Simulated scan of single mutants.
Amino acid sequence: MDLFDTHAHLNDENYNEDRDEMIQRARQAGIRHIVNIGFNLASSRESIKLADSYDLIYAAVGIHPHDAAEAGPGYLEELEKMALHPKVAAIGEIGLDYYRDLSPRPVQRKVFVEQMALAKKLQKPIIIHDRDAHGDMMDILRKEKLGPSGGVMHCYSGSWEMARELLDMGFYISIAGPVTFSNAARLKDVAARVPRDRLLIETDAPYLTPAPYRGRRNEPAHIQYTAEEIARLRGMEKEDLAKMCAENGRKLFRIA
């Protein structure tokens, strides 16, 4: 299959014992590209190192809302330097998280908007994290506008009505392992309705492991189960769904 895991954290310590083997399993499963995501300056640098080490891995650099309070003076300049690396495909993950509130909400919003502006300056797509912050997220996006390089709402968890507005703004919608859960009726509905040219899939590994491995460590090879469920929901063959989403990912992240 032609698979593209558009969001993973492969520099996570959960892979310290078998990282190379895990990446080889991804290749064997048909994964041709992975975007590895930064969440602060240190992890963004690690993401670039991984991208340099493996041909199928590309990097994203950014400050996650959990880490927004630690974004000190000069952080944007550091991100800009990193983003010039030829294998940095996006600015992310950035956004808002009102579930854990690990950074003050005003600081989250400020750092998010600053990174959106940086992405526009650098002509890079953005990867957005939005958890329990739909209202403020949509208000910011309506005001700040998505840049011409586009963006993706990662691990989508909102309603179809919200997805439709995001699609009108120019966003891609990315679906992760929870779509395989039996109680995910709203997410299944969204996965079935997103237009063909705007749908992405991801693992968010090592998190959000799909059935049948729910509760265990996730890894990119498991994306095939997410693809299989979305294909079922859309009445497609799994291989066709995988290829469609992979082509969308390559277009968004400008990967040949």
Rank of each mutant, 00 (worst) to 15 (best):
F253S: 02
A59Q: 09
T180K: 07
R232M: 03
H154M: 04
R250W: 06
Q224P: 00
L10I: 14
D197A: 11
M162A: 10
R216C: 03
E228L: 10
G235W: 07
G151V: 04
A205P: 04
L166Y: 12
I201Q: 05
D240V: 13
G158Y: 02
R234S: 00
F39M: 12
G177Q: 13
C245W: 01
Y15H: 07
G62A: 08
G177K: 12
D2V: 10
L56Y: 02
K243T: 14
K120A: 14
S159A: 06
E144K: 14
D97L: 11
E229N: 00
A205K: 04
G38E: 12
D130H: 07
D18I: 11
A185K: 15
F181A: 02
G135L: 03
P206T: 08
K243Q: 11
Q28T: 15
D130V: 15
A205I: 07
A8K: 03
A68C: 06
K81R: 15
F253C: 04
P148M: 04
I57C: 08
H9V: 02
K110C: 01
V88Y: 02
N40E: 14
G62K: 08
M236T: 02
I223P: 02
P220H: 09
N40Q: 11
F4T: 01
H9N: 14
A42C: 00
R234P: 00
M137D: 00
E237N: 10
L187K: 09
I37T: 13
H129R: 11
R45H: 04
A246R: 14
L56M: 15
L50Q: 12
G135F: 04
A26T: 08
G30D: 08
Q115H: 10
S44R: 05
K120E: 13
I140M: 09
S182V: 05
V111Q: 05
L96S: 12
D97T: 09
R254M: 03
L199F: 03
V190C: 02
G170K: 06
N248K: 09
G72Y: 07
A83W: 01
G135S: 13
P210K: 08
L122A: 07
Y172G: 04
S182R: 14
A211K: 09
L208V: 03
E21N: 11
H7F: 05
P65K: 13
N218R: 01
G95N: 12
K124P: 01
I57R: 04
G158K: 09
V194D: 13
P212N: 07
R27S: 13
F112C: 05
T209M: 12
N11Y: 15
H85P: 11
E17Q: 14
S53E: 15
E77Y: 04
T209G: 08
K145N: 12
L84P: 00
I31M: 12
V61P: 13
P212H: 06
C245L: 06
E202T: 09
N248C: 01
Y58S: 08
A8P: 04
T180F: 12
S47C: 11
K81C: 00
Y15S: 05
P125T: 03
P206W: 09
C245A: 15
S159H: 06
M169Q: 14
Y15D: 06
P125V: 04
E46Y: 00
V107F: 05
A192R: 14
R164P: 01
